[in-house]
Structure formats: structure tokens, C-alpha cells
């Protein structure tokens, strides 16, 4: 009896809807690809899919954690691009070994997060405008960092480093190393958010800021940790992007900002905070990437993907609104 109830709950849950959506996408794309003479259901597709997850997964995790606490970070992609250039510059021009370069990069990215947190908690900025301005600052600094010592203009910084090459594209068995990294990250953050004191406190801050404060939680410290976390994860995805291309690119992570945010919202982490989890964010990410990979296989103009990423974000928000409304109706 109890088991039956559980099954019913699962059938009604958002997770189930998302999994159905994912399955539907796969079916639609396989039929569409077949009709124009391509094949969607190949091992290659799934490897591409896994690879396309690499850069955006960390952004989705960072965005998800922050959204749960009721804030938003629009600077992660810019900070990530900054990190990608810094790691390349550090290895090529400053002759650092790659672990040291990565460490330095993540520290610098953490500084951006701390600055964001300071603006939001100390100066009462709305987080979106603070991080939007910070994105512009990070972009300027990124261009400054990419200017070679003997030149004047910003330029892509290519570099050589066997260690980072393995991080970006090496394989353990059949699985690419970064894919394993993502799997670990999702599990660790999933447990962190759902099972630890810190995670529960984050939900509380997002659910009701004042109640959290009254019950002895300091929201400022939680937000400081989360903003730093989000910037550092942005830095990680920047480093991974650079490691894959062996180049710190000025255009890196261009549209990844949306993908991360959209994945989190699509996965049930609503704006305003306090709900959702990492599992949903992962499936949300999977759906978006399936969609994008599918569009490539059926040969749709690549520029469409940018337009669609915005459209999916709006659709996800609308879905969120309707499901919330349905809930409050049942409650009242």
C-alpha cells in the first residue's frame, strides 16, 4: 500500500515530467534524424552529449545552489572566461606548472565571488545587477589579461600542457575524464544540499530569509560561501573549456550562462528560492543538451540554438509559474 503511494507520488513529481520530456526529445530526434538520412541513436551522439555537458554542468551546479538560496549570479560565464584566459596566461607567460596555474585561477575567481557577496549582503544590491556589473568588470580584466607581453591587443592565448590536456580530454577506460568529474560533482553537491546542515540552511535562507535569520542562521555567511562557490565553479568550467581547446579564448562560454541558469530552473529550482535540488538540475541540463545536440544532428542552423536557449528559459519559467499556481490552489 505504502509502496503504491510512493509510485503515485513519483508519477506526479516534476522529476517524472522531466524524464518523460527527455525521452520524448530522444524519440522525436531519432525520427527526425532518420527522415533526413542521419542517425541519432549512436554511441557517438551520446559521447558528444556527454562532452557538451562538461562546460555547462559546473555552471548549472553553481547557479542551482545560488537559486535555492534565493539569489542569482549572472557573472559566472564571464568569470569563467576570465579564468580560462588566466590559466592559459599563467602557463604560457608566467611559466607556472599547471596545478599551480589552476589554483591561482580558482583563487582569483573566488575573489569575484567574494566581491559579489559583499555587494549583495553589505550594500544591499539586488544580486542580478551586482553580478551583471561584475560580469562587465570580469570581461574587461579578461581582455587585459590576454594581451601578450610584447603586444597591445587582446588575443586568444594558446598554450601547451600535457597535464591539462588530460584533464580536458583524457580518458579513463571509455569515459572521458571530465565526464567522471561531472558525475562526482553532481553526487557531491546533491549530498551537500540534501543531507548536510549547510544544505538545509541554504534552503531555509531561500525559503524565508527573515525566518532563517531569526532562527539563528547568518544568511550573510551562507550567501558569501554560495557566491564564492558559484564563481569558483565558473572558473572550473572556464579551465575545462581552455583545457579542451588548449587555448584561453576570448569568446569562451558565450551562451553557457543561459544554459546553466535554464537547466536549474527547468529542473525545478524556482526563482525566489527554497525549492528544487541537484537531481532536477542534472536532468534539466540533460534535456537542454539533448536538444542542442539533436539540433546539430538534424542540421538546423546553429544560430537557432541561441534563440531557443532564451525561449526554453522563458518556457521553463512559465512551467514553474503554472506548477506553483496549481500547488497553491490545492493548498487553499
Amino acid at each position: 500500500m505504502k509502496n503504491k503511494m510512493k509510485n503515485k507520488d513519483f508519477l506526479k513529481s516534476k522529476m517524472f515530467t522531466l524524464l518523460v520530456l527527455e525521452a520524448a526529445l530522444i524519440i522525436i530526434f531519432s525520427i527526425w534524424a532518420r527522415s533526413i538520412g542521419n542517425n541519432f541513436l549512436t554511441a557517438n551522439t551520446f559521447l558528444n552529449l556527454a562532452n557538451s555537458l562538461v562546460v555547462t554542468a559546473f555552471l548549472a551546479i553553481g547557479a542551482g545552489c545560488l537559486l535555492i538560496s534565493g539569489e542569482i549570479d549572472l557573472s559566472t560565464a564571464a568569470v569563467g572566461a576570465f579564468g580560462g584566459v588566466i590559466v592559459a596566461t599563467a602557463i604560457r607567460y608566467w611559466d607556472l606548472s599547471w596545478p599551480l596555474a589552476v589554483l591561482l585561477t580558482l583563487l582569483l575567481c573566488a575573489a569575484f565571488g567574494a566581491a559579489n557577496a559583499l555587494l549583495v549582503t553589505r550594500f544591499n544590491f539586488q544580486s542580478f545587477i551586482a553580478t551583471l556589473a561584475m560580469a562587465s568588470v570580469a570581461k574587461g580584466l579578461m581582455m587585459f589579461a590576454s594581451v601578450p607581453p610584447d603586444g597591445d591587443n587582446p588575443i586568444h592565448v594558446s598554450f601547451r600542457s600535457p597535464g591539462l590536456e588530460f584533464v580536458g580530454g583524457g580518458k579513463i577506460g571509455v569515459l572521458p575524464f571530465p565526464v567522471i568529474l561531472i558525475a562526482i560533482a553532481f553526487v557531491v553537491y546533491g549530498l551537500l544540499m540534501s543531507k548536510t546542515k549547510f544544505g538545509r540552511r541554504t534552503y531555509m535562507v531561500g525559503g524565508n530569509h527573515r525566518a532563517a535569520w531569526l532562527s539563528g542562521i547568518d544568511p550573510k555567511i551562507i550567501l558569501l560561501i554560495l557566491f564564492i562557490n558559484s564563481s569558483v565553479l565558473g572558473g572550473v568550467s572556464g579551465v575545462l573549456a581552455s583545457a579542451r581547446a588548449m587555448q584561453g579564448g576570448l569568446q569562451a562560454l558565450g551562451s553557457a550562462q543561459f544554459t546553466g541558469l535554464t537547466a536549474a530552473v527547468l529542473g525545478g529550482i524556482s526563482f525566489g528560492g527554497g525549492t528544487g535540488g541537484m537531481g532536477g538540475a542534472f536532468v534539466g541540463l540533460l534535456i537542454i543538451n539533448t536538444f542542442q545536440t539533436g539540433m546539430q544532428i538534424v542540421n538546423v542552423n546553429a544560430f537557432w540554438s541561441n534563440a531557443f536557449s532564451g525561449l526554453i528559459l522563458i518556457a521553463a519559467l512559465a512551467m514553474d509559474y503554472f506548477s506553483n499556481r496549481a500547488k497553491t490552489k490545492i493548498g487553499s
Binding site: 542569482i72 551562451s255 543561459f258 541561441n306 534563440a307 532564451g310 528559459l313
Partner: peptide
Amino acid sequence: FIATIGTSAVLSG
């Protein structure tokens, strides 16, 4: 802000 960020991507796309 979030509505217009989304539509901004749609329009420029």
C-alpha cells in the same frame, strides 16, 4: 529582469 534576459537571447538569436 529574467524575462527580458530570456527574450534578449531570443531576439538577438
